[in-house]
């Protein structure tokens, strides 16, 4: 298991704090939405970064008002078949204009990385013996996209419009 961010294998500065653990005094943490609701004030008193973990049936709408305090949203894929997180990521970026880290966690299949990246994810918890190598292979799968999805990359239609040829 490794965390890939901006195309690099990085050490995860965040600690996942489960609901039965106490939040450590220092250091960036990721908590569930329930914890956030209960301990919001305590968490905000800390000076470290906060992330929230959303399960696939937890709509980011519920934390839309709090996004200014958050530097990370982890979206869980309980199974690679459950595609809700793609829409959550897009809503986070486009509707709620969240610019922090959106991390893919759970059943993150390499073959779906390009979909995730294009939907607004920018960090991936990758299950592999050599996560970086796996990531690089998967990331190289596509260089052309038909859709504009707000990740900054130009769609085929836009490139055609600019007279750019492949």
């Amino acid at each position: 298991m490794g965390l890939i961010k901006e195309g690099k294998l990085v050490n995860d500065p965040f600690k996942n704090v489960s609901d039965c653990e106490t939040v450590p005094a220092k250091g960036p943490v990721i908590v569930s939405i329930d914890q956030w609701m209960v301990r919001r004030d305590d968490l905000l008193k800390r000076s470290d970064l906060i992330g929230i973990w959303l399960k696939s049936d937890e709509h980011p709408e519920t934390i839309a008002g709090d996004l200014a305090y958050l530097s990370l949203v982890a979206l869980e894929f309980p199974s690679f078949r459950d595609g809700r997180a793609y829409s959550y990521a897009r809503l986070l970026r486009d509707k709620y204009v969240f610019s922090g880290e959106i991390r893919a966690v759970g059943d993150v299949l390499l073959d779906q990385l390009h979909f995730m990246a294009r939907s607004g994810f920018d960090a991936f918890e990758v299950e592999s013996e050599d996560p970086l190598d796996a990531y690089n292979i998967a990331a190289a799968d596509y260089s052309v996209w038909y859709q504009q999805t707000g990740d900054g990359r130009l769609s085929a239609a836009e490139l055609r419009g600019k007279g750019i040829r492949r």
């Binding site: 690679f80 459950d82 793609y86 779906q112 390009h114 979909f115 995730m116 939907s119 596509y142 038909y146």
Partner: peptide, 14 residues
């Protein structure tokens, strides 16, 4: 067709 082929958000619908 172009809009839906390999759509990043809608490739794992219910």
């Amino acid at each position: 067709r172009q809009y839906t082929v390999l759509h990043p958000e809608f490739s794992f619908l219910p």
